[in-house]
Amino acid sequence: MRRALRDNGLSIGFGLLFLAALVGQAFAGRAAFNERQLADSGRQLTLLEYVTSSDFAVDVAENWQSEYLQFLLFVLATVWLVQRGSNESKLVENAGTESDEQQKVGKHAEPDSPEWARTGGWRTAVFSTSLGVVMGVLFALSWLAQSIAGRSAFNAERLAQFQDPLTWFGYVGSADFWNRTLQNWQSEFLAMVSIVVLSIYLRQRGSPESKPVGAPHDATQESG
């Protein structure tokens, strides 16, 4: 058990942080929602009612889609785009999809390489793009969830004000939807730029997200 916890500490640690933050968001979000309901003479919601409401769903989904978009773009962009000196970039001369030998596929696979990396053909082609594809699907699903939950929450407000509800296409083209979307996207893009540039000049000893403390600023793709 101790070894399993050690070997999977990163995923377990962040998984627990995710659950703790999600629970905290549920309690804080319900409190904020009920405060607005009280001011508007609306009905207070129980915790279960709130976490199954469109208001909670849209707040969660809009953050998830921006995070998956961040990783999708980073996974795809770093195939071709490089940043000399950044630990988040591969070597400048390796820009592109790289050779089979570099990627250890087909006849260049090692004994412990994944089976689909060794077999060649469509299996290797699928496996070679599986990370980007899955990230893209997760982004699309969470973006769709945001649009559906967001429309429901937005229309609830419109109906309370005796306004006609919007169709899904009408909501996706609305200012409310794009305000929710872009305010998350811009923060993700800023974070990506920050880690790429700051990792050129700053260090964190022992972190694979940083170069070794003594590595020169122009060293690229080194882990410390």
Score class of each variant (00 low, 15 high):
F71S: 06
S66W: 06
R43N: 12
F33C: 08
Q83S: 07
A4R: 11
F27P: 01
L76P: 03
A26L: 09
L38H: 10
A57T: 12
R30A: 01
G42H: 09
L17C: 13
A32H: 12
A57N: 09
A77C: 00
F71W: 13
S99H: 02
T78W: 04
K90C: 07
L17N: 11
F74S: 02
N8G: 10
G96T: 04
L81E: 02
E35P: 06
A39K: 14
L10C: 03
Q44P: 03
V23N: 04
E88C: 10
F18H: 04
E88R: 13
F18W: 09
V23S: 11
D40L: 14
F74K: 06
T97M: 10
T46G: 11
L45K: 03
E93F: 10
N63E: 13
K90V: 04
L5F: 15
D55S: 09
T46Y: 06
V92I: 11
Q103I: 00
L45G: 05
S86Y: 00
L22H: 13
T46R: 05
Q102L: 03
E49R: 15
F33L: 13
N94W: 00
V23R: 00
V79Q: 09
S11T: 15
D40W: 10
L16T: 12
L76N: 08
A31Q: 11
F74N: 01
R43G: 06
L48P: 05
G13W: 09
L91N: 06
G85I: 01
S86C: 02
K104H: 06
A57F: 10
A57M: 12
S89W: 00
S41Q: 10
L69E: 04
L10N: 08
N8L: 14
V23D: 05
G42K: 04
E98I: 12
L38K: 11
D100I: 05
Q83K: 09
D40H: 12
D59R: 15
S54E: 13
A20P: 07
D55V: 08
E101W: 05
V82G: 01
F74Q: 06
A28Q: 13
V105F: 04
F71I: 14
Q70V: 01
Q25S: 14
Q102W: 05
R84N: 10
R36L: 14
G42E: 07
T97P: 08
W64L: 15
A31E: 11
N94C: 03
Q102E: 12
G13E: 08
L81A: 12
L73A: 13
R36K: 13
A77K: 02
R36N: 14
T78K: 07
E93S: 15
L19V: 10
V105G: 01
I12Y: 15
F74T: 03
S99G: 03
L72T: 03
S11Y: 14
L10T: 08
L76V: 14
T52I: 06
K104V: 08
A95T: 00
F74H: 03
R84I: 11
A28K: 15
R30C: 01
Q37E: 13
V51G: 08
F71V: 13
Q102D: 00
A20D: 07
L45S: 04
V105S: 02
S53G: 05
Q44C: 07
A95F: 01
F33A: 10
R6H: 15
Q65R: 03
Q102G: 01
V58E: 09
A95D: 01
